[in-house]
Nucleic acid binder design. Structure first.
Lengths: 312, 312
DNA sequence: TGCCCCGAATAATCCCACGTTATGAATGCC
DNA sequence: GGCATTCATAACGTGGGATTATTCGGGGCA
């Protein structure tokens, strides 16, 4: 009784109700006539009730058959609605993509991405939340977002790159240079590049926790222990603090696109140079969801050269 | 896309949405875990879209999966409604049986049948139309009725008995004696039985066409050609005509249950005696429909002894 | 951090449901 | 009474879908 009524049987009964003949139903459904006959017999056997009786040349539905035929319209239309919604999804006519990205991207990469998505796939809605990489990855793992745009410094332990975690996959987007901001009147501001090793005595202004970690690692690599006086994840504040002569700071290139460099500060490249990577992380397997694939493609198609980003 | 979404898949997605795990869904549906996993993979292959992604210990629905799960409630409830109606039908909790019977049965066998059906199966509705045997059989063949209660005289050409017609089946109910009514003052009214051969000069009153045919055949068998003066299919009229001394008539026994024998008439058996058979005819195969089977059983259980009917 | 348990994926295998073609029987039409 | 149409049956092949056994990955807990 449970599995007795399947969709195929319902479609068959419906077709018979419309055509009044098994052969006609078979033609309409694209099957051979014996296929329908046999299937009917099987279903009748499962149900314990005949659905059709021969009536002269053709066939006539019994009362149970008529009952099924009556319900068939409801059932098939409900199913058509489902497969219609599904078709919209695979055809990119609808869908929802939830994106998280780190703060600096909010005012640069993300708006351009949202615009590209709206232009290319108007039916797809994109939701966006701002989150630092660790939080963004956490939300991804919890299924709260579909795409997490993150950055990672080389050697970062929390970098999903090096963790062979099969549950998420990383797609590299850009390589972002890390530059140094220092007061315009600083002794090393004159050159094109600044050697970190020569900043053993500098007062440092640190950014977000990850950036601070990179600062420590970069200094350690050249045998220096930075003295960190100030700490803020606000890039504009960092630049202004530097401009006020309160210290030096490592800044990701993208920060410069969000805030003007104040008159009292200059930006230089470092030696040894360092980059961080910008990437988008997705749940394994979800790339095959059309809307997510479209979003991923849109992100990879973004050009960030005007912000100083290099494709990676 | 057409056959991609079947009921099983929908149930599976629904179960996964509820349990959050494939194993749980498998247990709930009574399958092994690999069965669900593989079925999902097949459906995803057909759809071209993943429905689930692994999420830590369990699994999470993708957006397409959620869409299916949303529609699943509608679809399965529509289907449950259908199988509920079907279950009512097989459980005799509902149903419709359409019956046709010949006029004399309308006031005898049919009321008793209707009462028996109402007592035994209150949920089944029975519709009834009165029709002479040929018309009743015609309605049966056209699918307008499910049961046709008919009578047949021996040798009747239109009797479905002798016609090896596979489209209908005949179930015998009773053997009904045919008696003769004659004026009380008739010369032959004195004896217990009346020899037809001695009625060569009688004025006959004929009944319905079939009865008239039987009259002719019965007389012919004894070498007599009846003179038919009057003709009516109204049994009461026939009896009163006889009572008025206007002629003699062959009458089926059941007619006497519908009309009192007037003082001026008497009823006798005939020699040679003749019977007609009362039977119910159904479309081949429809006996397996529960409501029709129940009606058929109720008819066969009817006792007609008080009307002078013998089981056959 | 390492161990252990639970759930998912894969592999190998089996079988019945369901499709096909070929053919026969019954019915309505000309 | 032939002819066309339709359903039923037979024989057969394929694959969907189930099973068990096993491996892999991830989370929870000491």
């Amino acid at each position: 009784m449970d599995t007795a009524l399947d969709l195929h049987s319902i479609r068959i009964v419906r077709a018979i109700a419309e055509h009044g003949t098994i052969s006609g139903a078979a033609r309409a459904l694209g099957f051979s006539q014996p296929a329908i006959s046999q299937h009917l017999r099987r279903v009748e056997g499962r149900l314990g009730v005949p659905l059709v009786v021969r009536a002269g040349r053709g066939v006539r539905l019994t009362e149970p058959g008529q009952v099924i035929a009556r319900h068939a319209i409801t059932i098939t239309s409900a199913l058509d609605a489902a497969s219609g919604d599904l078709a919209d999804l695979v055809g990119l006519a609808s869908g929802l993509v939830r994106v998280a990205a780190f703060p600096t991207a909010s005012s640069t990469v993300v708006p351009r991405f949202l615009q590209a998505m709206r232009d290319a796939h108007p039916g797809i809605t994109v939701s966006y939340v701002e989150a630092e990489p660790p939080e963004a990855i956490g939300m991804l793992r919890e299924g709260l977002v579909d795409l997490a745009v993150t950055f990672a410094y080389p050697g970062d332990r929390a970098d999903p790159h090096r963790d062979p975690d099969a549950s998420v996959e990383t797609v590299p987007l850009y390589t972002e240079p890390v530059v140094i901001a220092l007061p315009a009147d600083h002794a090393l501001a004159a050159g094109e590049t600044v050697e970190l090793a020569r900043l053993a005595d500098a007062r440092w202004i640190a950014g977000c926790p990850l950036c601070r970690g990179h600062l420590l690692a970069a200094c350690e690599a050249v045998g220096v222990t930075p003295r960190i006086d100030l700490e803020t994840d606000n890039a504009i504040a960092v630049l202004n603090l530097v401009g006020a002569g309160l210290g030096v700071a490592l800044l990701p290139q993208l920060a410069l696109a969000t805030a003007p460099v104040p008159p009292g500060a200059v930006v230089r490249s470092t030696s040894p140079s360092s980059d961080r990577s910008i990437q988008v992380i997705v749940q394994s397997g979800s790339q095959r969801v059309p809307s997510i694939a479209a979003a991923l493609a849109a992100m990879r198609a973004l050009d960030g050269a005007d912000w100083g980003l290099r494709r990676s």
